[in-house]
Write a protein that binds this DNA or RNA. Structure first.
Length: 337
DNA sequence: TACCATGATTGGCT
DNA sequence: AGCCAATCATGGTA
């Protein structure tokens, strides 16, 4: 075998050996390991040793126990264990056919990427995302950001809550995994004095444990991703997060609508101005007019009062002298109602 | 809690 | 691209 295996000595020095399983007998005779007794001599050459081991099942418990201890003290034991380890490597272990280098799980990678993208898994990042975006889209009414700042903060708070939970859980699993792994390693090391265990076997066991724990982590990551998705859909889906426009905004929009009732189709420039006045986006203005037109048409009777309301409002404004800058198309053509 | 109001979305049309 | 109509999903309220 290679140098790694040949250098491996599965045994502590015999003098340090303490049996894990206490002798079944309390008879002191077999607890004194006298290497000078005739029974122990056969362990000094390979053939004798093998013979002793093979016939151990025929012996009484006490006798077998005694031989076991004699074997443990034999100078041939390390070499013997080494051979057994090599045989194991070639046969029994391979039956399990443990995949040595399994490809990284695709799902796990996806989850990791997402967690990284959401700022859950990566390093803590400072909340500078909104400042740059608002600067970039200056025309999109600064007050929108003000209005949604509270919710945005709420979103970030919930996200960091998820992040915190994720990290503490992850750490917990990591800790548990390490504890368990070192425990098993210790156990195997201890057992390697009594039975042939190769370092590769231990490595494999560690790999198995890590795999088990990583599947637990996978579940954690999965549920974290789920939580983030739910959070996102709650907070970032505008449709779900519909807010009524402010009273002044609807007033401005209605004012325009009823003063242009004959042709309630604001131009792009008009939309932009309305958007600016109302602190909403242009597409929101378009939505509003779309909804308004269709709903006005559907229920003209009901809208009549509203129309009168805004008509009188306009009249008042005109009477108060604001009318110096006449509203262009209002009085000239509103024949239909 | 039921019901209506309202902003957003979707699909089809021009 | 802009619009209409239907629809969704939530907000507000009696």
């Amino acid at each position: 075998m290679d140098g790694q295996d040949s250098s491996y000595n599965p045994n502590l020095p015999p003098s340090h050996y303490t049996p894990m399983i206490p002798p079944l007998t309390t008879d002191v005779k077999y607890n004194l390991y006298d290497t000078n007794t005739s029974e122990n001599k056969p362990f000094n050459d390979v053939n004798g040793m093998l013979q002793q081991i093979m016939s151990i099942v025929d012996q009484s418990l006490d006798e077998a126990q005694s031989r076991k201890h004699a074997f443990n003290q034999s100078r041939l034991k390390p070499a013997f264990f080494q051979v057994l380890c090599e045989i194991k490597e070639k046969t029994a272990i391979n039956i399990r056919n443990f995949p040595e280098d399994e490809p990284p799980d695709a799902q796990l990678m996806r989850l990791d990427n997402m967690l990284l993208a959401e700022g859950i898994a990566g390093p803590e990042r400072l909340g500078g995302s909104s400042t740059s975006s608002s600067a970039a889209s200056a025309n999109a009414a600064a007050s929108i950001n003000d209005e949604s700042a509270l919710e945005h903060g709420d979103y970030r708070a919930k996200l960091s809550q998820i992040r915190q939970l994720y990290h503490s859980e992850l750490e917990k699993y990591e800790q548990a995994c390490n504890d368990f792994t070192s425990h098993v390693i210790n156990l195997l090391h201890e057992q390697s004095r009594a039975r042939p265990i190769s370092p590769r076997e231990i490595d494999r066991m560690v790999a198995i444990i890590r795999k088990k724990f990583s599947s637990i982590q996978l579940q954690l990551k999965q549920s974290t991703c789920e939580a983030v998705m739910i959070l996102r859909s709650r907070f970032l889906d505008a449709r779900r997060k519909r807010r009524n426009f402010s009273k002044t905004a609807t007033e401005v929009l209605n004012e325009y609508f009823y003063s242009h009732l004959s042709n309630p189709y604001p131009s792009e420039e008009a939309k932009e101005e309305l958007a600016r006045k109302c602190g909403i986006s242009v597409s929101q203005v378009s939505n509003w007019f779309g909804n308004k037109r269709i709903r006005y048409k559907k229920n003209i009777g009901k809208a009549q009062e509203e129309a009168n309301l805004y008509a009188s409002k306009l009249a008042n404004q005109a009477a108060q002298g604001v009318g110096s800058m006449r509203r262009d198309s209002d009085s000239s053509h509103h024949g239909e109602r």
